[in-house]
C-alpha cells in the first residue's frame, strides 16, 4: 500500500475515533426546566435550576448560582467548604459516577431571608439503587440569592 494511502486511512481512523470519543455523557435525560415548571418566588428559579441540574447531572446550572464560598457535603465523596470554581469540578466528579433520577423538593422554607429547600432523590451507583436527601441553602448577596450550602446525603 502506498504511503499516501496509509496516511489517509490513518487520518480517517483517527477522525472516526475522535467522533466516537467526543460523545457528551451529560446530554440530559429528557428532563427540562420547563417540564418541571417554574416557581414564581424570587429564588424559585434557582431552586428550579438545582432540581434540573441534579436530575440531569448538569453542574453548570448549579454552579452559576454558587456563592464565592460554598459548603458542599456529598455522601461517599467530598465534604468541605470550596470556592465556586472548585465546587464546580467537585460536583462534576461526583455526578460522573452517579446517575440521578428526578429530584423534586418536598420542603421549601425561608427563615429571615435565608431560604432553603430539601427533597429526596434516587440514584444509581455501581449498579445499585440508593436514595439521598438533598438540602440546599441560599443567602442574599448583594441583590441576588446565591447558594451557600449544598448537601446530598
Amino acid at each position: 500500500m502506498k504511503i499516501r494511502s496509509r496516511i489517509v486511512l490513518s487520518l480517517l481512523a483517527v477522525f472516526a475515533h475522535v467522533l466516537a470519543a467526543s460523545g457528551n455523557p451529560a446530554l440530559g435525560q429528557g428532563i427540562t426546566r420547563d417540564s418541571l415548571g417554574g416557581s414564581k418566588s424570587e429564588y424559585g428559579a434557582i431552586l428550579d435550576d438545582v432540581e434540573v441540574g441534579i436530575s440531569t447531572s448538569n453542574v453548570g446550572l448549579l454552579a452559576k448560582h454558587f456563592a464565592p464560598q460554598v459548603g458542599i457535603n456529598l455522601r461517599g465523596d467530598e465534604n468541605g467548604t470550596f470556592s465556586s470554581n472548585q465546587a464546580y469540578y467537585v460536583l462534576m466528579k461526583f455526578f460522573r459516577t452517579r446517575k440521578f433520577a428526578r429530584l423534586q423538593f418536598s420542603t421549601v422554607g425561608a427563615s429571615d431571608s435565608n431560604p432553603y429547600a430539601t427533597g429526596g432523590v434516587e440514584f444509581m451507583y455501581k449498579g445499585a439503587k440508593a436514595r439521598a436527601q438533598v438540602y440546599v441553602a441560599l443567602m442574599i448577596e448583594g441583590r441576588k440569592h446565591v447558594i451557600t450550602q449544598l448537601s446530598i446525603y
Partner: peptide, 18 residues
Amino acid sequence: AQQVIRPADSWLKFVLDE
C-alpha cells in the same frame, strides 16, 4: 461567621425532618 449568624432554625428543622 455567616454560618454562626445563620438562623439555626431552618437548619435544625431540616435535620429533624430528615
